[in-house]
Amino acid sequence: MSTSEVKPTKEAPRKLVQTNPDYDPNIVVETQNLSKIYRDFWGRQKVRALKALDLEVRKGEIFGLLGPNGSGKSTTIKLLLGLLFPTSGRALVFGKDATEVTKNERIGYLPEESYLYRYLTAEETLDFYGRLFNMPTKVRQERAKELIDRVGLTWAKRRQLREYSKGMVRRIGLAQALINDPELVLLDEPTSGLDPMGTREMKDLIIDLKRQGKTVIMCSHLLADVQDVCDRIAILYQGELKELGRVDSLLKVSEETQVRFTGVPQSAYDEIRTVIEKHGGSVKSLENPKTTLEELFLNIVRESQERPGHRSAGARGKD
């Protein structure tokens, strides 16, 4: 997979291919030159939300979409789900056009805010979504029970969602996303509204999904969360892809080296490399230090603001 190659942003004509004859089952999501322009009623261009996005998400990875507000993350997710139609380019999910409804059989989606029917109870909610997957009654009931247990809402399963707290709604939202045991899970801001415990559980669950062989695409503002769970990330800014790569590579600072040691007094800090052994201490690790994702993210945004239209140089060649 090309990780850092970004194709030119020129719009290509929309191709009307439903399925990809060269479908590689290891590539779950593929976007080619995907662009989206929002227009007003008269067809005049309002916003260019996404510019020629090329992405590939491989089976079994946790892929993070990062970017400030209005960067095109949600647009990308909506295009992948068929909630929006691309202006040009195409989005393929499991080798099928994103607007094709049958692809949804294998997808689970947790929206940014849990857009659920407030007048339904937790049980009714899961029963409803289970029916949409044409699941037989018995399977549906078992699955609903299991998921309600898993998100810890058994005690409130007969209450209408309007009585739920934000965190509880988020949990039931996650449960509905997993009702069909999906192969691909799209999570829009999965930890928003969750308390620290809930956030931890959500992150554990995402890692658990990966362990089960599922593919996860998530977008989040909470960089620490992304850093904790994602294998690869893409950073978008004003509709353009600014960075794409493995989290550990992106966060590696190759010009510097980090030494981790222990048992050395504070006064010996100035002569670290030459003196450690002289003082009889032991070197624990010797490697390149890592910045935080937050720092990387802010650097890219700052650089993009200073030099609009350019790909960030901050982490190129670190794949």
Binding site: G82, V101, N104, Y109, L116, Y117, G173, N180
Partner: peptide, 9 residues
């Protein structure tokens, strides 16, 4: 709320 419906089959 339609988002969670149309993203099902």
């Amino acid at each position: 709320t339609i988002y969670t419906v149309v993203t099902k089959p």
